[in-house]
């Protein structure tokens, strides 16, 4: 592929030559698809403002979401929601997720560098071995994890979640990282060696700066995996203070009592900050993708 390494400005991307008909059809398709994708969010917020009778029986416009005939804002102030706990859960989720992603990212990029940039016979075998990680169902790791964490004396701490989350994100992260790294021309490394850079220098000065799109992609992937993880968290966490958000949401479902409005309120409170953060960060994320164009 061309390696002209020109800094193509992101703005200069629009191709004006495509016909107006194509543009209109594309836009219509995108709008329809967007409505389908916005609907769950709308429905979730509606759910949080209804009581059980409205959720299960009243359906205006034929839509299950409907417009509540009475808004049940009290779902948000219901003491059973334990807002203060949700705040704790949220904090824990953020800490656990961010650290797990950071560990997975660093480990994956380093591994990827060793696998893709060094000529050694076993690299293919190691690559395949790491792929094994994608295959492990989380459910079978629970008992080994319980035993491992207790032997390491970290039972119930945040570390006991962070390490497994990082490990489960690792294989996919290596896979993504490998993909991006093959796209970075080896000539850049060679040039750096001639300039007197060591292996480590090349990694930090040449490879890492060019891997920003990989960071976003891996980050998003690992984020989804860690943020919604329920099974490991349920089994490994031993105290209320260390619990993460998915457990908090799950605990809104009582044994013989399900208050849908309350569940809706809990989930909405848990989701909205994430959507706001995503919207704020999406510009950065998208720019990092476009930055990928630099490498040609």
């Amino acid at each position: 592929m061309a390696n002209d390494n020109k800094l193509g400005a992101p703005e200069g991307y629009t191709i004006k030559k495509s016909g107006p008909a194509l543009r209109i059809i594309s836009t219509i398709l995108l709008i329809v698809w967007s409505i389908i994708n916005l609907y769950p969010l709308f429905w979730m917020i509606m759910l949080s403002l209804k009581n059980n009778e409205q959720v299960n029986l009243t359906h205006k416009f034929g839509l299950p979401a409907g417009w509540p005939n009475k808004w049940h804002w009290e779902n948000y102030t219901n003491p059973e929601l334990h807002l203060e706990r949700i705040v704790t859960y949220f904090k824990n989720s953020v800490i656990v997720t961010v650290l797990a992603i950071a560990i997975a990212l660093v480990a994956a990029m380093m591994a990827s560098y060793a696998l893709m940039r060094f000529n050694w016979r076993a690299s293919g075998a190691f690559n395949k071995m790491f792929m094994l990680g994608i295959t492990v169902p989380v459910q079978v790791s629970l008992v080994p994890l319980l035993i491992t964490t207790s032997e390491l004396g970290i039972t119930g701490s945040r570390i006991s979640l962070i390490i497994p989350y990082a490990a489960f994100a690792l294989s996919m992260a290596i896979l993504i990282s490998n993909g991006f790294m093959t796209n970075i021309p080896k000539e850049l490394d060679e040039a750096a060696y001639i300039d007197g850079c060591s292996r480590y220098g090349v990694f930090f000065r040449i490879i890492l700066p060019l891997m920003t799109p990989a960071i976003s992609t891996i980050g998003i992937y690992s984020f989804l995996q860690c943020w919604n993880e329920l099974i490991i968290a349920t089994t490994l966490v031993t105290s209320e203070e260390m619990r993460t958000l998915p457990i908090g949401i799950r605990n809104l479902v009582g044994t013989n009592k399900v208050d849908y409005g309350l569940i809706g309120a809990g989930i909405t409170i848990a989701t909205i900050p994430m959507i706001i953060v995503y919207i704020l960060m999406s510009r950065k994320i998208q720019e990092s993708f476009i930055a990928g164009a630099v490498k040609g």
């Binding site: 629970l142 008992v143 319980l146 207790s150 349920t234 089994t235 799950r250 605990n251 044994t255």
Partner: peptide, 17 residues
Amino acid sequence: ATQNDEYKGKIKDAFQA
């Protein structure tokens, strides 16, 4: 306190470990 369905799995794993 753990949700009913999750609890059934949790307690069995805990006993095994």
